[in-house]
């Protein structure tokens, strides 16, 4: 029988949650026995090849592309996990939510102390995904089945969540595994 598939993505995140996933140490060998990786930065597959049992999504939605990837994950994954604080509540990128988008861009590309941009233009190529007005937690965009908070979630929490979901049960996090920092 084919192994169940797992997919992962980092949207508006820092890849710290993926690093924490790798932090499961030697259990990564067990993980490879349990699952095949589908679309994921870990195997560099860019598109889904089929239905996945579990989708782990790190980072919130900061732009149009994040939203499209997230919807693609929702479509292909039986269980969607918000991996980490950014996916759960927006995280550090959501610090810009109290500042109008135009001001953010002007600060980043024109007015910032270390900016060198003689033309003063703000990048606006159609190739660049459009920024959203606010950085959104995943649950603002799609239905999320499991939340794993933490910055990043401890490796043990990720291991418990993934193995539990593969066994078809709800993750049971200990006190030390449920952290917001």
């Amino acid at each position: 029988m084919d192994k169940p598939k797992i997919a992962t993505a980092s949207l508006a995140g820092c890849f710290g949650c993926h690093m924490s996933l790798l932090d499961i140490d030697e259990r990564i060998l067990k993980l490879i026995e349990l699952v095949d990786f589908d679309k994921s930065p870990i195997d560099d597959l860019k598109t889904f090849t089929g239905r996945c049992r579990v989708g782990l999504v790190e980072g919130g939605c900061a732009n149009q592309e994040n939203v499209e990837v997230l919807r693609d994950f929702r479509k292909h994954c039986d269980v969607l996990v918000a991996l980490g604080d950014c996916a759960t509540m927006g995280g550090l990128p959501a610090m810009r939510n109290g500042i109008p988008l135009r001001e953010c861009l002007e600060e980043a590309y024109r007015d910032g102390l270390t900016v060198h941009n003689p033309s003063g233009t703000i990048p606006n190529d159609p190739e660049i995904p459009l920024l959203l007005d606010k950085v959104r937690p995943l649950s603002d965009v799609v239905k999320v089945d499991v939340f794993l908070p933490g910055c990043p979630p401890p490796a043990d929490a990720i291991w418990e969540a993934v193995t539990a979901l593969l066994e078809g049960r709800a993750p049971n996090l200990t006190y030390d595994q449920l952290k917001y920092d």
Binding site: T88, L92, M95, V144, V146, P149, L178, Y180
Partner: peptide, 30 residues
């Protein structure tokens, strides 16, 4: 409430209550 960079994280009573009550994420929109 950005716990990930808050100086009070770990000593915060709001956070500690959420931990004890087992809240992984609020059910309401931010």
């Amino acid at each position: 409430h950005f716990c990930m960079f808050c100086e009070k994280s770990g000593n915060c009573e709001l956070q500690a209550l959420a931990y004890r009550l087992g809240i992984a994420s609020p059910r309401y929109p931010y």
